[in-house]
Design a binder for these strands. Structure first.
Lengths: 191, 191
DNA sequence: CGCTGGCATTTACATATGTAAAGAAAATTA
DNA sequence: TAATTTTCTTTACATATGTAAATGCCAGCG
């Protein structure tokens, strides 16, 4: 539980009362490799804290091919944020790539606490802002850099991930085919 | 000013006192075609409400080529959100594509009001969430759809914009070259 | 009215990247 | 260890899209 509190406090410090309340909302849970935290098509209602492990967020294109949109490496917040906010069916599945230790809470309950604690409302704002910044970062990278550079950045950002994931997952995250990633790797080796 | 209040209220209703305070923060201003609301490299400190007109957000790649990241069509909030949040130099310029009527306020002053009014903190949260949702939407479109479909969607979303903007701006928004957009247009005509 | 400049389209070619299939390598299981 | 499956790399080819340059179009100005 302590990891969780540290994580929260690093985003936005929170008063005692509020802390107590949210602690009660979150229950520990195990997520095994390949288990889904949230599936496509369902209405999301849980938010989670990923203590340990790796989770991917992905969706399918028309031909049913997977596109890995994001990797979460603990400690991190997970959950189908868009579905939680819009109350629409979820489009982006989240699946454990390794065994994971998580804490889960009901998002609606959390939202209710916004009324009660200004601190938590602020936390919610900071989290939303953080997500926004992350996305903008990725948007710029996608628009500005070619796959070679994106690959290097991603190795830098998630050093562990290449050891754990098959390369087609990584290719999909970079928005390229495994073949292309293979070509890039070869080019990097010979230079 | 009324447009502004309606816009705010449509995002999140706000109590009288808070309304009064933020009204005082915002001052009317004219932005002429080609004027910048915020430039690259400077520290952003203003947030704006675009009553009327069109503003583009764009950045430059290594070769100095422009990439139009986003169009704002009034009524809308404008401002270099990332720079405002991170207090880092701005990377994404915002420039008027038509003459614009706007209201401007100092973002730090606004942020200070978050402490004073829970309502405003909530508004800030909702805005951040809204921005996030917008970005996710675009991310999915970029990953899932080819330029043809993105073009149709964009015509749908901003019907006016094609009449006002040169086609190379639109191509750049779609992430393709003017040549390619031309090819797409031809293909759509012959079908 | 004809120039001029800005934009759009077209053409020709280069390049990046995709798909499919085959073979090599690595990991897993019996 | 051998067999089997999964993953990775390579090859060959197809396609999408970029760049550069030529041409066409049109509005506004002298």
């Amino acid at each position: 539980m302590n990891d969780f509190l540290n994580y929260i406090n690093s985003i936005n410090p929170i008063n005692e009362d509020a802390l107590k309340e949210i602690q009660q909302c979150f229950k520990p849970k195990q997520l095994l490799k390949d288990d889904f935290f949230v599936k496509e098509g369902e209405y999301a209602h849980q938010i989670g804290f990923l203590k340990k492990g790796i989770v991917r967020a992905y969706f399918l294109n028309q031909k049913g091919k997977e596109y890995n949109k994001q990797f979460f490496v603990g400690p991190s917040i997970i959950g189908a944020y868009t579905s939680l906010l819009t109350k629409q069916p979820n489009k982006i599945a989240q699946q454990a790539l390794t065994d994971c230790e998580i804490l889960v809470a009901d998002f609606n309950e959390m939202e209710k606490l916004y009324d009660k604690f200004h601190d938590l409302e602020r936390l919610g704002r900071k989290i939303a802002e953080f997500y926004f910044l992350e996305k903008e970062q990725k948007e710029i990278e996608m628009a500005l850099l070619d796959a070679d550079k994106r690959y290097l950045i991603m190795r830098d950002r998630f050093p562990a991930i290449e050891l754990i994931l098959p390369q087609y997952h990584i290719a999909s995250y970079l928005g390229i085919s495994p073949t292309q990633l293979s070509r890039i790797r070869r080019k990097l080796k010979n230079s």
